[in-house]
């Protein structure tokens, strides 16, 4: 396992081997009694081993749906209408359901937002973690228990032997999330998707969990997709960032470039809305208006209504991605250029 990879962009690395996961043109439709809404619209994403991709956006921007669609875990009313999900150069959308079941939890694992309700209340923590092992490895009961205790220890749960036999309600939020992470990484997945892993937790615990995820990522040489609406989390943990707005990716950039020099007006708006410690502000700079619901999605730029940089060209046609250098791109008719 190599821990030598640089954080930030690594164009050489990207060019040398295909990314671990590449999503191309993924579109998801939700069927509701009022009609079908395309909640994810031609999303492209890439992530390589040892890298963290931060997927940031408001609630309803389609970040979770994108990831659930990748693992084919969408609820019955959601369906993928377009696109490819290439994992190790294999299209997951074309796999049989059995092969997909084999892959879930084994090569791709997922950690969810609310750990307190994402663990089964009537099963012990030990049972739930060792189940992952039994599902994907031909392993004896004792070996699974030993490994589970190791995992509990690895994610920083004190007294693993006692905790093994406890139930989720006896765990605090932070401890539950650690247990969820232990469960997800038990089979040493190649890709870990963490959907708002810290949102339900106290700020102090948030930092610990992010630290743990980063640590595990490099120890196990995993790829990590971190879904969040919190730019603070992105700044702390991500290497690459994809910003989503109203079902589309609007900007993709290495984390430092994104924060230093946001090019999409929406990204700029997000960054401006953060409270600053170095400046005295009376009011936060919120973006005017709110993100459109799926039934109001238009073909043209969806941020137009709230954007200060728009003109007539923004309406009607979808803004194409413009590549900026080798490592970033932005989908805007009038990207902001550094002054």
């Amino acid at each position: 396992m190599s821990n030598t990879q640089n954080h930030g962009t690594n164009a050489d690395h990207m060019a040398a081997s295909p990314p671990l996961l590449e999503v191309r043109g993924l579109s998801v439709v939700f069927d509701t009694p009022e009609g079908s809404h395309q909640v994810v619209d031609h999303v492209d994403l890439k992530v390589s081993s040892g890298q963290t991709l931060g997927l940031v956006g408001e609630s309803g921007s389609g970040k979770s749906v994108t990831c659930l669609a990748m693992l084919r875990l969408l609820a019955a009313r959601g369906r993928v209408i377009n696109g490819e999900v290439l994992f190790q150069e294999q299209d997951l959308l074309k796999l049989s359901e059995d092969d997909m079941t084999q892959l879930r939890g084994c090569k791709i694992a997922m950690v969810f937002q609310d750990p307190m309700v994402s663990l089964n209340p009537v099963r012990t923590i030990g049972w739930q973690i060792s189940e992952s092992l039994h599902l994907h490895q031909n392993i004896s009961r004792e070996a699974a228990k030993r490994r589970t205790l190791e995992m509990l220890d690895l994610v920083g749960i004190p007294e693993p032997k006692t905790r093994y036999n406890e139930y989720p309600h006896q765990f605090s939020g932070g401890m539950s999330q650690r247990a969820m992470i232990a469960m997800a990484i038990a089979c040493e997945p190649k890709l870990l998707i963490a959907d708002e892993p810290t949102t339900a937790l106290d700020v102090t615990i948030q930092a610990q969990i992010l630290e743990l995820l980063s640590q595990l990522k490099s120890d196990l040489d995993m790829a990590l997709i971190l879904i969040t609406h919190d730019l603070g989390v992105i700044a702390e943990a991500a290497d690459e960032v994809a910003v989503m707005y109203a079902g589309r990716v609007v900007e993709e950039a290495p984390v430092f470039d994104l924060f230093d020099n946001p090019m999409h007006p929406y990204t700029l708006g997000l960054l401006n809305s953060l409270p600053r410690v170095d400046r005295k502000v009376d009011r936060l700079n919120a973006i005017e208006g709110s993100a459109p619901p799926p039934h109001e999605f238009v073909e043209g730029c969806r941020f137009e209504q709230r954007c200060g940089h728009c003109d007539d060209s923004c309406t009607g046609t979808r803004p194409d991605f413009k590549n900026i250098g080798t490592s970033r791109r932005v989908a805007c008719m009038h990207p902001i250029t550094t002054s």
């Binding site: 875990l73 079941t101 879930r104 939890g105 694992a109 609310d114 994402s118 099963r123 189940e131 969820m180």
Partner: peptide, 26 residues
């Protein structure tokens, strides 16, 4: 519709296993 059923799916439990070991006891 509880989140822990999604967890069971995400960890790769078969349909049958999800029902018998995760859903029914609850």
């Amino acid at each position: 519709r509880q989140p822990y059923m999604r967890t069971a799916r995400a960890k790769g439990a078969s349909k049958w296993r999800q029902i018998v070991w995760h859903a029914l006891p609850n």
